[in-house]
Design a protein around this nucleic acid. Structure first.
Length: 215
DNA sequence: AGCCAGGGTCTAA
DNA sequence: TTAGACCATGGC
């Protein structure tokens, strides 16, 4: 059976944009992105929002460094894996401090170097590193998450690993942090609404594409 | 009750 | 390089 050509990254982006409109940016503050990106690891976003609301506001990197470990652990506790997350948050604050807590100082460095530094931090893997690079520092690093993998699978794309997923988007979208960030956020929004492990296909705006290609 | 949540690190083969 | 155990908590 001849399978129809699958959606290109650009077509997918347009479909999502049509369905959800222009997405917001994660946060204006770099350390807020780092803090929340760690908290959300294997955790529902709603839990992160609740934890942050309970804090009043996300602490600054400087504040985190001045706090005892136990205090940071308490901030992370409601999101699970709190010891590992507290350690990662403190390490990220220290890393940011190495650049004087200045976004511009980080941005002056090569992307590959920054990615390597972030990946060397325990508790920071590829997804978290790319979230930070993209949403905190506006670098063109496409974020591959569980929702994205799931959706592409359901659309019938056969992408072996995250590298191929990244290539699919990085080749298909304009190479700019704005587009990468918008596209990932749309994938996220769509995933939360319809593309979980137990999908809600009946109301999904992409059901036509899925049905067509999973036949 | 039990699965699920926007992951990451270790280890063993 | 890949698979599986483990990490911890809260929501539904």
């Amino acid at each position: 059976m001849e399978r129809q050509a699958v959606l290109s990254a650009d077509e997918l982006y347009r479909e999502l944009y049509k369905a959800y409109g222009r997405p917001p940016w994660w946060s204006q503050d770099p350390f807020t992105v780092m803090f929340q990106a760690v908290l959300v690891q294997n955790t529902a976003w709603s839990s992160v929002q609740k934890a942050c609301a309970a804090l009043g506001e996300v602490p600054s990197a400087q504040a985190v460094l001045a706090l005892p470990v136990e205090e940071v652990e308490n901030m992370a506790r409601p999101c699970g894996f709190y010891k590992a997350k507290a350690r990662a948050i403190r390490a990220l604050a220290a890393w940011y401090g190495g650049y004087g807590f200045e976004r511009r100082a980080v941005q002056a460095q090569p992307l590959k170097k920054l990615r390597g530094e972030l990946l060397n931090i325990k508790g920071v893997g590829a997804e978290t590193a790319d979230v930070i690079l993209l949403y905190a520092f506006y670098q063109p690093a496409f974020v591959v998450d569980a929702y994205t993998r799931r959706l592409l699978g359901r659309l019938g794309l056969d992408l072996k690993n995250d590298g191929e997923v990244r290539a699919y988007f990085e080749a298909g979208l304009p190479r700019s942090a704005r587009h990468y960030g918008w596209c990932h956020w749309l994938l996220l929004e769509h995933g939360i609404a319809f593309c979980r492990k137990r999908p809600r296909c009946a109301a999904c705006p992409l059901r036509a594409a899925c049905a067509q290609r999973l036949k």
